[in-house]
């Protein structure tokens, strides 16, 4: 093969590689624009109701972290959100959790969380959650217990 031919082949190869990289990047963006978010809402208290079986395997971590005697599942909400699309999940006490994916940073989804109570936001946070990772958010009082919501996501 002549030198000029090698040059041509190399140029073509580089172009194709660049194109392939571009497409791979694009596919990442396209697919990352779909976020599967699950919100598991639990009310933990010192009552004697025990553990709600529906909570499943997550209970071990909760029991290891908190000293509540009762963990009751309130609801489990699945949301499939596009980039910058806000999804709402009901929380006990007339609260609403809104989640907005803001983007992807490496292997983490950048999520904006806001808790609304009586129509106004009383807590906002921006987190970077690992793909297939979970965050446990809790604290707001509900009756004699506290609200704990576990947010997991995959993209």
């Amino acid at each position: 093969m002549k030198k000029s031919e090698i040059k041509v082949v190399l140029t073509i190869g580089k172009t194709l590689l660049a194109l392939a990289s571009f497409f791979i990047l694009m596919t990442n963006i396209v697919y990352a624009s779909q976020f599967n978010v699950t919100i598991t809402t639990i009310v933990a208290s010192h009552g004697n109701k025990g553990v709600d079986r529906r909570i499943g395997g997550q209970i071990k971590e909760l029991q290891a972290s908190f000293r509540y005697s009762s963990y009751q599942l309130v609801n489990k909400t699945h949301k499939r959100l596009a980039l910058n699309q806000t999804g709402n999940a009901p929380l006990p006490g007339g609260r609403v959790l809104s989640i907005t994916p803001l983007g992807v940073a490496g292997n983490r989804a950048k999520l904006k969380l806001a808790v609304f109570k009586n129509g106004s936001s009383n807590f906002q946070t921006v987190i970077q959650l690992l793909n297939n990772g979970r965050i446990i958010v809790g604290g707001p009082q509900h009756g004699s217990g506290v609200i704990i919501f576990i947010i997991s996501n995959s993209f």
Partner: peptide, 23 residues
Amino acid sequence: GETTTVMIMETPHSHETILWYNE
């Protein structure tokens, strides 16, 4: 937000982040 305390912790086994706040 309108919070009094905010704590960031980790679960002991799987080191999942815990964000704890009080209204």
